[in-house]
Each structure stands twice: as C-alpha cells, then as structure tokens.
Design a protein around this nucleic acid. Structure first.
Lengths: 246, 246
DNA sequence: ACATCCTTTCCATAATATGGAAAAAGTCTT
DNA sequence: AAGACTTTTTCCATATTATGGAAAGGATGT
C-alpha cells in the first residue's frame, strides 16, 4: 500500500508537467480531483524546497530542484538503455540510438554503434529538428501539438526527400501512429535510412529508439518484421526504465 | 507547516541523487536518518509510479518518471533565466549565457546576445568540454570529482592558451572557488574572453552564468567589479529558480 | 463599490503514517 | 553446506498527522 500524500504530490507534479509546467490551483484541482486545501498544503511543501515555485499571478510552476534530480535520472536511464540498444544492433546489424524531445528538438541521449566498418554515427547530445528524423516523427506522433511544433520550427529542406509540406507530414504522423513505427527515407541525410519505434511510460511516448544505416542495407531488411522486433525491445525497456505505468 | 511524508520523500530522492542516482536502503537511512520501515514504505510509493526503481541487487535507483518532469522544469528555468541574462548583457555589453553540466559536458541552456554587431554566439544545446570554458571551471570548482572528470574527458588543446596540465587546472579551480568567478582567456577560442559565475540552489552549484566577447573588450572591463555585479544577478536568479535552499 | 472567481487559512477529527521488532533474504566465511 | 552477519522487508498498535469543508482573503472585471 502506498503513502497517500506522496501519491497525491506526484499527481500534482504530473498535472503541472502535463500543462507545460505551469497552472493555477483550480486547474490542478480539475486534473487531480483533490480538494483545494489539500493541494495547497502539498504545494507549500514543494514550494519550501524549490520543487515548485509561485509566479506573481499566484499560479504555480515546476521548480528548479527538479532539474538536478531529472538530470541524474536521465544519465541513469541512458545507461539502462544500452543493453536494449545492443539487442537492436544485433537484430538489425545497424547502429541503434535513443532520443528524446527537449523543447522542439530531438536530442540523442544514448547510442550503440554497429560493428560494421560502414556505420551511422550520431553524437550523443546532438540536437536535430524532428520533422526529418524517424525518432522525431515517433515522438511527435504522440503529441497533440505536433502542428504547433512544426509551426515554430519550420520544415527546412535537408535533402530532396525531406517532407516540407505540413499537411503531408501530419498525415505521415497518422500513419506512424497506426503502424507503430516511423521511417526516415533519406529525409535528414541522403543515402541514410532509419526506422524508429516509441518508448512509452505507459501513458505517453517519452523516448524513441531507432536503427539507421545505408539506405540499401536498411531497405534489404524486412521492415515490418524488424519494426515488430524493435517494438518488443523498446517495450521491455519502457517497463524497466519507466515502470508499468499507473 | 509542511507535509512530513512529502518532505521525507524528497529527502530520499535527494539522497539518491547525491549518490549518483543509486543507493541501498541502509545508505539512504544513513543520509536521511529515517527509520528503515519508513524509507521502505515511501520507496514503494515511488517505485509504483516509476520515480524510483529497484536493481537486481535490491539497491534503489532514481527512475525514468523523473526525467520528463525534470525536462519540463528545465525548459521553464531556461525561460526564467532570460531576464537575468539580459541584466548581465546590460552590465557588460556582451553576450550572456547560462550552462549546466550534463554528464561530463557543459551544455548551454539559455542565452541573451549582445546588441553589438560583433558578438559572441553559442548555440543553445551546444555541448563543450568543461576544462577550456569559464562556465565549465565554475561548475567543476564545486565538484569533489573534478579530477575524475578531467581523467575521463582528457584536456584536449583547443588553442595555444588551453590549460592542458591537470595539476595547473586543479589549482585554477581552487582559485575559482576562492575568488568566486572563472575566466576563459582564449582557452576555448582564440581572441575570445569569458567570465563566469556560479548559480547555486543553496547547497551546490547547479548552473553557471557567463558573459563573453572579444578579448580586448572583456579585458577593458574592471574584472572584479564585473564579477561582483554578475554574482549578484546570478544569486538573485538562484533564489528565484531554486528556492533559498533548506 | 460590488460581483465573481480563485486562493489561502483554519481546525475538529477521521484516517493515515509511523517505527520498533521480528521475519526474510542475501552475502561472506569457514 | 552451514552458520554468522548484514541488509531489507513485513507487520501492526497507536501516536500523530493529513484531511477537507467552510470561511476568510485576494485579484480581476464591470
């Protein structure tokens, strides 16, 4: 049996995170169904320690104390991903990556390179726009505000294959959602293909995992079969890293 | 008055973060002075929601659910930094940046550019090694494991001014700690000087803020006076973003 | 100045979190 | 394989806290 007030506090933090990090007390109440007095008291505890802060308009926001703990956690998660990425390399023969969204950008947070001499390399920490990458599509396919993200980032042409029409791209995201994986067919870099699958925490997509390599080698693989194997691995990782959800 | 079990849960999360993200129950007990039964119950609550996970050797680790909340919080903090960075630009006339450590790397997370036509620019998201940057020195000056970090990253020469001798660099960090600011005198890029100050959450240095520009313009400024002004701004920001500590 | 909506405070009490002891599990040594 | 030791997990009586509805306070709009 869990500790009720801790559960409730996590509910409040997640309610804030779900609303972009900031919300009023009554908005939190609407999402968590908790009484105002209870929310207020729990928020005061978080406030005292910097986990939450209060804006001048009395709205609450996630606070800086979460950043440090989040960063420590992220380093650990990156480490846990490696055995799973290794399995993806074994399955496909190609370099495997994990990426997350940071703001409007895709950031690579873990990688296991292919043993082949000709291999893809994406520097861990590298940031790219989501529209022309397979992991970007996987991440945005789960987001209601994908159109807004594309509005902010634009859809700059990286290669002749880059999808630069927003309607076509949004339609592509529908396809990604339906079939459970995304492709990058030379959209980010000529001659490079990439297949990505989502990592879920049970509620939402929190990361993407992908394999990438030369176009002809990726094309030679059975795409749906590969996707299915990658999805299984990604699911197992999601359970380990993020719990089975609630 | 705060909610005791929430305070205790935060104590536990911070104890884990302080130990690199992983610890046994008795290690957490040593740090938090809480009874084993209490810690266990609170950990089970966090476990159920993915905020903590248990390794196969029964040790506990920070879990993936913290990553998402930490990322939302980081975006907000970056936004709050901008008014303070703006003040730094007004004070110095030069571009102001904020950076954090992610693993062994310095990452720029916020920037306000100088209005001057000749100005420094560091892409938000860019990662650099800490040894040759002012913010890197400020961040590592607070770290007991700075020597280990340098051991892992190496001290690659970026310019003829780069400090590549580890003893000299560690001595430099002592100086940084003593005087409260760090300098980059063309160590990362020829002709560019940089002055950085720490941002503290009350306990430890969580970020660095800096101003940088052409060497002659930075040299023409009164260094100690500038540092004092920047430290005040950074302190004010630390209070806003991270609370006054506990 | 008033109405409305949102936030904060208060406090009686229902309900929970507590924590010491015992049980269980894992590791190390012989 | 068995015993010693250390760490973790479970249990449950009860002390103590967290609760939440009502009232008070604050901000906004007219």
């Amino acid at each position: 049996m869990s500790v009720q007030s801790v559960d409730r506090t996590l509910d409040i933090l997640e309610a804030l995170a779900d609303q972009g990090g900031e919300a009023g007390l009554s908005e939190i109440a609407a999402r968590t169904r908790l009484p105002y007095g209870t929310i207020h008291r729990l928020l005061q505890t978080l406030l005292a320690r910097g986990y939450v802060r209060q804006e001048s308009d009395r709205r609450y926001a996630l606070g800086g104390s979460l950043v440090r703990i989040g960063e420590v956690a992220e380093r650990l998660v990156g480490g846990w991903a490696e055995p799973y990425l290794t399995k993806m390399v074994e399955l496909s023969g190609e370099t495997a990556n994990m990426a997350v969204l940071e703001g409007d950008f895709v950031v690579y947070v873990a990688q296991v390179p292919s043993p082949r001499r000709l291999r893809m390399f994406a520097e861990v920490g590298r940031r790219v726009l989501p529209h022309s990458t397979a992991v970007g599509k996987v991440l945005l396919a789960d987001r209601a505000d994908a159109a807004a993200v594309f509005g902010r980032t634009g859809l700059p042409r990286r290669t002749e294959h880059t999808i630069t029409n927003v309607d076509r791209l949004l339609a592509e995201l529908v396809t990604v959602r339906e079939r459970g994986y995304a492709m990058d067919l030379g959209e980010e870099e000529l001659g490079v293909h990439c297949l990505a699958v989502p990592v879920s925490d049970g509620d939402r997509v929190v990361a993407g995992m992908s394999v990438s390599g030369p176009a002809d080698r990726i094309s030679a693989l059975n795409r749906d079969e590969l996707a299915q194997g990658l999805r299984k691995i990604a699911h197992d990782f999601g359970v380990e890293a993020f719990g089975s959800g609630r």
